[in-house]
Each structure stands twice: as C-alpha cells, then as structure tokens.
Design a protein around this nucleic acid. Sequence first.
DNA 1: GGTTATTTGTGGCAAATTGCCAGACCCCTG
DNA 2: CAGGGGTCTGGCAATTTGCCACAAATAACC
Lengths: 257, 257
Amino acid sequence: MARPIAARRHEEILKRITHTGTVSVEELATSFGVSRETIRRDLKALADRGRLSVVHGGAARRETTEPALGERAQENIAGKAAIGRTAASLVEDGMVVLLDSGTTTLAVARALTTKRNLTICTNSLAHAQLLCRAPGSRVHMLGGEIDPTDEAAVGLDVIEALSRFRVDIAFVGAGGLSQDGEVTDYTRAGAEQRARMIATATKAYFVLDRGKFGRLTPIRIRDADRAGLIVDAKPPPSIAEALARRSTELMIAVECD
Amino acid sequence: MARPIAARRHEEILKRITHTGTVSVEELATSFGVSRETIRRDLKALADRGRLSVVHGGAARRETTEPALGERAQENIAGKAAIGRTAASLVEDGMVVLLDSGTTTLAVARALTTKRNLTICTNSLAHAQLLCRAPGSRVHMLGGEIDPTDEAAVGLDVIEALSRFRVDIAFVGAGGLSQDGEVTDYTRAGAEQRARMIATATKAYFVLDRGKFGRLTPIRIRDADRAGLIVDAKPPPSIAEALARRSTELMIAVECD
DNA sequence: GGTTATTTGTGGCAAATTGCCAGACCCCTG
DNA sequence: CAGGGGTCTGGCAATTTGCCACAAATAACC
C-alpha cells in the first residue's frame, strides 16, 4: 500500500512541475529530506502514470519537453523515409488511400505529397494537416475522440467513419512484430481499429521500422495475415522464417543517400 | 555545485528563440553560466529534434513554410487573445465546448488550455492538436473532408457528427459583421455549418475581431440572432445601434498588458 | 506479537553531462 | 586574396547522474 508520505511528495512534485516547468532530483531530495534514489522512484512512478517526463537530472512537464510524437518522429528518420518511398511506389493515380496514425505512416504521408489526384483518409491530425497543405489531393479526416499520445482519433467513431469509404490501399502502423511473425499492438481498442482498417481496404500493408522487430506488445491484430509488411531492414532470421511460413508478403525498403 | 538541468536550458532557449528570433552562443553561455561548448551541444540537440536551426554564432527560429493560416494568426494578436480570455471566462468546469475553425477561435482554444475537465469538440485540425497537448480535457475531432484554407473539416460529415453531441457552449467564427449587425459568411456551406453549430449548442457566441467590422460577405448565417457576440473593440455607432435593435448580446473584451 | 509486504536507503558500476584544449574552419575586413 | 579574429569540432578527463540489487526500516495484517 502507498504510504501517505509518498503520496504527499507526489502531490508536491506535480505542483512544482506545473509551476516552474522543471524540477531537479537534487532539489527535491534535499527539500523532502530523502535520498535521491527515492525521488527518482517517485519520478518514475509519476512518469509511468503519464504525469510528467523524466529527463536527465530531474523531470519536466510533459507537454512542453515531450511532444512525444515529435520526439519519436526523429528516431530512425532515414529508415522511415525509405519505408515511405516504398509505400508511395505502390500508390497509383486516383487511388483512395487510408493512413493510420504513427510516425512511420507520417513518413508515408510525406512521400505521398508528391502524388496527385489521391483521396486520402486518416485519423491522425498531423497527417491530415501535412497532406492538406500539399496540393493535388483531397483529405478526409476520420473523426472521433483524440488520443493525446498519438494525436489521432480513436474509437467507435473512427470505425464507423471508416465504413463509409471504399479504400484501395491502406498503410497501418502497429506496436510490434513478435518472434512468431505476428503483428501486435498495445491496446485492445487500437488492435481492433487497425483490424478494421485492414478489412476495409482492398490491399493493406503494415509499415514497421526496424525498432519494432521482436518487440512484444500484448494484443494480436486480427486479420493481420491479409496485410503485407513494409520494413526498412532485413528482419532477424527467426522472424523471417516465421513470416515465410505464414506466407506474409514482405517488402524491404532500401535507404538512399 | 549542483549541475543545472539541460532541459531547463532547452526550454529557456526555445522561449528566447520564439520571442526574439535569434540567439547567440555567447549570450546564452554567460546567461546560464556554462561554457560555450555546452550551449553548442544544447543547440545541436534541439536542432536534431527539429526545434530550431543552428547558424554561425548561434541559432535561429526554424524556417518553416508557414501556411496562409499562420499569417492571418499574426494579425491583431492582442485583440484575439483578449477575446480568448473573455470567451474562456464563460466556460465552467465540466462543460462541453464546441469550437469552430479560424484564427480567432484558435485564441479561444489557447485560453481554454488552462481549464480542466472539459470536453471540447472542434472541426479544426490545429485546434484539436493544440488542445490535446494540454492536459485535463478530452478532445473530439469532428471528421469530414478537409478544407485546405482553414485546415478544418467541412461538409455533411461535420454536420452529422455534430448531431451526436450535447453542447453547452459554442464559439463560432464568421466572415464579417455587416453594417446592419448581421453576421455573414463567405460560402453557403460554411454558413450552414455554422448555423448548425449554433443550433446544437445551449449557448453560442460569435468571436469576431475588429477587422471584421463592416466587412461584407455574401451569405447570411441562419439563427445568428440566437448567438451572442464577443469582440475586441467597441463597434462603430451604426453597427452598435443595429445590434441593440436586434437585442444581440454583445461582450467587448479588454486587452491587458 | 510475529510475520509479511512495501517502502526507503546504500553501495558499486555504467552512462551521461560538462569543461577544457588543440586544431580546423568560417566570416569579415583591409 | 590574404590575414586575423572569432567559431566549430573532436577527444579526453572529471564529475554527476542513473540503474540495479540487496539490506534495513516501517506499516499492515492475522
């Protein structure tokens, strides 16, 4: 059970964070008269609950230092760009394209800005904004409640809005690619939504950058076998074998400099 | 000596950059009391995350191709902020708020970030993004085809999505405020959509900055009389008289420095 | 009152940050 | 176009911070 003392510290830490923006471990430790390790555990607990983000030497308010999305978008840029180019090469003039949220699909969106005469559906705010600034394509936003971590709509509204579209090709993200070659997701709702996206489209591809190889997330995505895979590096042998057994279509994007 | 947290410097650097446009390494080093190398590393880290660009001797705001939207948002900032504050003062804890697209309603969105426990519906991508980054409120995006000039959803889908919500208070933009005290819009579709927004809400307000006074746009907005008006300056006498005849509720926001 | 579970503190080691220094580079001026 | 002053880059050492595992302390429970 949580000791009242710890709860009091948490409260005070959050108050300081919202007031000043950042706190340091050292400050808090001397101020509360506890060890730095304890403070660090407090910060970790609060970070796990999404109330702040831990930075070197302390913690900072979540929304200012951690657009989380912008941060993640910077990882493995070259690989994601390569995936984007490969995905775009599958898209032909006049197609209806469905784009999931995520940083890898954002790279696909960038690659699609060079195309013309597309109809693009997405549940992501950033993707919609990017694509509507590029000329030549119509953009449809799938509405619904916005998940702050993805900055994209999720839930029943999205699934229902999806049902109105006839989609030629879908590019979908995911949480991880297991050793068994299964595509998995973090949440039940997310997995279901992605399954619907795949079911809606004539052809669907998961876009997964190399960071997802072997990552274990809890929920299996239904109908994932219907979808192909676009990645930015050769998967490890064990995964590659599993994919071959499932006869999953696999495309490996090559980076160019 | 206690080591300063890098995140604190980063935050301050970004603040200065957005404020003054450029910063110099020397300035920052003396101001933070650290070496120039450290500052350079900070700048590199921020540049890697895409928050600024490094130039010889310092750093500058990142050159982004700001869309026309960004331009308009720069006009009459103080007035729009005042309107935002006034609008926010009408919003109470737990309310369901409907936000139209536009630069003036964006100021309202900014003011609403300080509130808690709201449910906010909007058809604007930028508004949704801004609000979902602020903690404490749920955001619903009204889906539909994206109009590139407003970067917001328009059309039948929006009107239908609207019908699912029970809205306490709506803040709506418009094209102009005529000499007769009539609120008007550029397009038929836009006027209809705004009329529906007003009809959906228990209470609705147009937010119009002084630039809209006397501007003539072709389409009258239905049911505009049900809505109040929030402006940032006393309207000219002729308009004020017309509004009084219509017994339109008029709030004039005051700028504070 | 004894036992269990949770929290807190401590120590060692890995990793990150910072300052300093030397050499290469850039920009400006004459 | 050459020189000078300032700026950037890379490596290295000192210090701080983070992480992990284990021990101690304290609250909760029967």
